[in-house]
Design a protein around this nucleic acid. Structure first.
Lengths: 240, 240
DNA sequence: CGATTACTTGAGCCTACTCAACTATCGTGG
DNA sequence: CCACGATAGTTGAGTAGGCTCAAGTAATCG
């Protein structure tokens, strides 16, 4: 069974067996973190690239009123700070949401991988470009959709992304987040999110059992939330 | 006087004279477009990279209700679709807001530039990473700030970005957009935006004369809108 | 100069927020 | 293993920022 890291990058470029091997071997330094632990702080210029292997992490910024806005979820297979060396400094914070297992890859190893394989280079850039596309879609989601569709859209996205790394079935997945964390993501209050979750539940759009979410009719949820998966760019591998 | 394209990339990497020359020479095919003209449509896989030389363009997505959300402004010096070849398809539309002069650079030329100069490679990637950072800041702006601070924040950003390419003075610039276009950007109705503009005007935070915006006290506007310019990464050039 | 587009202002409504209290669940030490 | 404190989730009542609808004025362009 390939790791989520390799599984994910497969979508970005047609990896060779050797590429896969190189990527697996690059993951040596693996560390465990508790929930709510900041991995990288704003203004850091970290010398490692961080890859999430298990658990949920996020990018976020703090707000003057003490709240925070989560700008991206980082799930197994995702890189936290690929290519930040080009910007020198990171302009947001990266922290865990749940307990996480995180691989630390020194920049030198990333550079080696990229100089050895054009496919890996392409796959890594693909990952950052998909990240950028995802933020754009979140911008639409936060600014234009009402609370119920906003949550529904996020769930559609998570279903697809988790499926891509083998962490979701056809219509269900484990979402180990608190409602407060979801509220920080969807730019609403915890109170309001709670009401919206109930609304989707009684509307039959989602089912909850503990932290497991099941979507009885995926197509219906996609239509409801105006979900178009094109921004995830998961459909086709690219030649070269 | 260097073109905005070169002026902008200077911030991403310390270009050599030769780099500047190469970049200037790469701009051969320049075309003129009217306002409200779509340059690149969703699902296109364009074979040219488009660089804005004059005027304002934007990235946007249409919404099911007929409205649209503008996700980024593209001002002189900005590249529209750098590196989309890695994603095969673009997941949003790019269109002009005002009349624009746009350079068309074939991908082959971009690849030549990048293979000849590591600095140019770095600068071009810097530009896309800054774009990504800017969308993240917009996400915060749209989802967390009230209408007045939202507009103020956008104006602070535009002041800095236009200054970087020599199109703004210390405290003023020309913003050739309609209120409707601003409203599509800031995710509010035209009616509401109009009220907010007036509010900032009577509050003495901005002054308007035609399409020229003057900011009497830039520092005050920055504090008011919680503006932190770090996400624009305009501060320091990077060695090699 | 007429027609279209852009801007302005008013009135009433609704989504999502705040404040508040209460219940359930989780984690940890005695 | 239970007890207790802390965190998470739930529900109610009232408020407000931004929306809709509407009507009118100013600016722009052919």
């Amino acid at each position: 069974m390939p790791t989520p890291f390799v599984l994910k990058l497969e979508y970005g470029a047609g990896l060779s067996d050797r590429d896969r091997q190189e990527l697996e071997q690059a993951v040596r330094d693996v560390r465990q973190f508790k929930a709510r632990h900041d991995l990288i702080l704003e203004d850091d210029s970290p010398e490692n690239v961080h890859v999430i292997l298990e658990g949920f992490a996020c990018r976020y910024k703090r707000l003057p009123d003490g709240g925070r806005q989560i700008m991206a979820y980082l799930i197994p297979g995702d890189c936290c700070d690929l290519h930040v060396s080009i910007l020198n400094k990171i302009d947001h914070t990266i922290g865990t949401l749940t307990a996480c297992k995180v691989a630390f890859l020194p920049h030198t190893i990333i550079e080696d991988l990229m100089s050895q394989s054009r496919t890996i280079t392409r796959a890594l850039w693909w990952a950052t470009l998909v990240d950028a596309g995802t933020v754009r879609e979140w911008l639409i989601n936060m600014s234009r959709r009402p609370a119920d569709k906003r949550l529904a859209h996020l769930l559609c996205e998570l279903l697809m992304r988790l499926q891509a790394v083998g962490l979701a079935t056809d219509n269900s997945f484990v979402l180990p987040l608190t409602q407060r964390q979801l509220a920080d993501t969807l730019a609403m209050t915890g109170v309001h999110l709670n009401r919206i979750v109930r609304q989707l539940r009684v509307g039959g759009l989602i089912m909850l059992k503990g932290h497991t979410i099941t979507i009885p009719d995926v197509e219906r949820l996609k239509i409801f939330s105006d979900f178009n998966p094109n921004y995830l760019h998961l459909t086709q591998h690219h030649e070269t």
